[in-house]
Amino acid sequence: ARSCWDPEPCGAQGVFNQADVLADIETMETWMRSHPFIGYTGSYAQYVRLVNMLLAAEPGVKPDVKDLAIPSREFLTSIDPDDDRDPDGIVQLYNGLLEMMTSDGDMDSFVSADWNEGVILGFINTMDPRETHQVTMDIQQYIEDHKNDKGFSKVNFGLRSGPLGDLSGDTNELSVEGPNYVRPAVGGFLGATEATREVAMDNWLVGPLQTALAVFVIAALIFRSLLVAGMLIFTLMITLFAQYGLGGYFTSVEEWSGNLAFHLLVTLSIAMGLGVDYGIYILSRLKEEIEVTAGDWGQSLQNTLNTTGSAVIVSVVVLLGSFIPLVSTDLANTWGLAMYIGEALIIDVFTALMLLPTMVYWFKPKYVFGEYK
């Protein structure tokens, strides 16, 4: 039955009927609100504090804000050292009152229907990735420092994952002190942001290098030349490190929309793919022109630039025309994509039309020159 707190028919009320747990949540919220990068907070403890303040006032007397607190043993005895009331009994009474006074779903954001699961919400007042990272680290450290407090020692901080066969969160081996111990994660937008930051940190170099390796292998097989594949990769590395430089610049001026974060890592591989396309076009046409002109390098280069070179320039102009309008958007992800791809296209056209022919002339790969080498 609704609002039935008799343990015989209804069972145990749950950990949120214990004043020590709510008191530790209250203390953590107070700490969070004092953090320079956290604004408002909310939890089920706020409901209990409000009820305590309202019921502590005598009829007709204005509630005193000093009673806006969890009725823990420490709080009760600070007012009256002889107060022997049971804090858990008071909290259980408040739970029943709140259940009766609220509509279905009103408190679901903070506490589960069985009173055994709850959350603390905090609103981050910064978008600086360094500061959001600091908030995450500070919250995790607070939990580590206080996980054995009187109230928190009774709960599980369950935002842990794996191993795949045991997703029980704080009760599995990941929560046991030792080499496999994992700190509980932070949920919500901040947690998702931090998770993507960690992915970006792990893949900002590995991902593009894997793309470069794939391009090298495929190019070597297509052209049957390690030298040609190496020249293509060299041009791609110029584009790649130019993009790293752009990311560093945006970070230095605190333009976080262009920070080389998770959502922009894909642009590195896209830019490398576009760059190798232009290089392949130029190499293939140079080979054809060398055969037609019987090894006349000057004429072959001129013919290549007049035909395929012009097509590459037109292609770049068209692509730039499609990305430049995106720079005016207020969507950070789209703006960053346009900036990185736009920069890569400009660099790609210069490396394909100027640097690559120069390297071909210097190294004279057999694929291009054949018998005229």
Rank of each mutant, 00 (worst) to 15 (best):
V318N: 05
P71C: 02
R73P: 00
A214F: 15
G14A: 06
K147P: 04
D114I: 12
L209Y: 12
Q13V: 11
K150E: 12
T132F: 02
A219K: 15
V48Q: 00
L50Y: 03
L260T: 00
F262D: 04
P87I: 07
S284H: 13
L213R: 04
F216C: 10
S3N: 09
V276Y: 00
L164F: 14
P59I: 07
A23Y: 04
K366D: 07
S34W: 02
V349P: 04
N306L: 14
T126D: 03
M101Q: 11
V276C: 06
N333A: 11
T211C: 04
S252Y: 09
T193Y: 14
L159A: 10
L55A: 13
I282V: 11
P7H: 08
K364D: 09
A271Y: 03
K287S: 06
G273C: 10
P81T: 09
A12C: 12
V217I: 15
K287Q: 14
I25W: 01
D104A: 09
D138A: 01
A271H: 02
L260A: 00
V135E: 00
S310Q: 13
Q299S: 07
L98P: 07
T136E: 06
L209F: 15
M100L: 12
D106I: 07
M28T: 02
E198W: 09
M201F: 14
L286T: 05
Q299K: 10
R197K: 10
E117Y: 14
V206N: 03
T235V: 03
D20K: 07
F323T: 02
H146D: 08
V186A: 02
Y94C: 10
A311G: 13
N116I: 04
